[in-house]
Every structure is written in C-alpha cells, then in structure tokens.
Amino acid sequence: MTRETSTESGQEKAQYLIFNLRGEPFAIPLLGVKEIIEYGSVTPIPGMPEFIRGVINLRGRVVPVIDLAARFGEPPTVIGERTCVVIVELHEETGVQDMGIVVDGVNAVSDIPASDLEPPPKFGAKIRVDFIQGMWKSQDRFVIVLDQARVLSVQEINQLAALVEDTQMA
C-alpha cells in the first residue's frame, strides 16, 4: 500500500485510489490510505459542521469521519450498500492524524503519470478550485484528483467547527 512514486523511464508517476461520489469518479493519492472499512456505528458529534459525520472506534482509536459530498457543499451522502470509509493518514504540523472519508464505493487503484494531470478548470467543477490538484482523463471521463491536504485540512475544519459552536452557543 505504500509504494512510492516510481521513476520508470524518467516518467514521474504515482498511484491513486479512485472512488465514487454521487456517481462521479474522484482520486486521492494511495500513499496516505491506510485501510478501507465498511460504513457503520458512527457516533455523531453535535455542534459540528454538517460534513463531519462523527467519530468511529477504529480498534481503540477514535477517528473522525468526514462526509466528502457535504464538504463540497452538496447534500450529504446517503448511506447505501457500497458506502465505505477510507481511512487516510494526514501529516499535520501537530502530528499524524487519521481521518475517515465517506465514499459511495471504491473503484480501482491507478498509476497516474504526473504529465497526464491537467490543471483544474477555472470554473465549472462546482468544487472549490483549491480542493482540486488536477484532472485526469481516464478512458472516456475526467477523474477529479483531490488535493487531500486542502480538503481534509484539520485547521480549516477546526475554524469551521468553532464558527458553528459560536453561533449555536450565542
């Protein structure tokens, strides 16, 4: 799971996990993915932004779970049979933090050469441009490659949470 960027024939490429969200393919670097588990027994945490679904107990560790769709400002994910949680490891300034992201299903692992990554469109993706690292053309459709550090920025989530807390408590 932790194969790093390889440089075969001088070509920079990395492995990505491709998953589904509301019928659309997205990708995150495979490097930070620790495991993929079935969705279940998430304890909701009141007073948090909607995209934080709560926490799960992962073998004794408490891991926050993020609803990616809600994070993109879309309606929250409807839990279905294929819904799962991708556990990723984030290297924050304050230390290593595990986080779970709710996705509608995992599709594949793909090698994506760096040169194949297109810059994100200036508009039209309906997702904050800084969340997108690039676009990758896979067969007939575009896969949105996410900038994981931005999407899952603990600092930003924190600020949003503080905002929610303030409005609720005022």
Binding site: I45, G47, M48, I52, V55, R61, V62, P64, E92, T94, Q97, M99, V154, I157, N158, A161, A162, V164, E165
Partner: peptide, 12 residues
C-alpha cells in the same frame, strides 16, 4: 479517556 483530537478542539 481518549482525546477527541484536533478536529474537535472547538467543542469546549
């Protein structure tokens, strides 16, 4: 007791 983590630090 386990810390709830950085993400939830706003929840006083």
């Amino acid at each position: 007791i386990k810390p709830l983590g950085e993400v939830f630090s706003a929840l006083k």
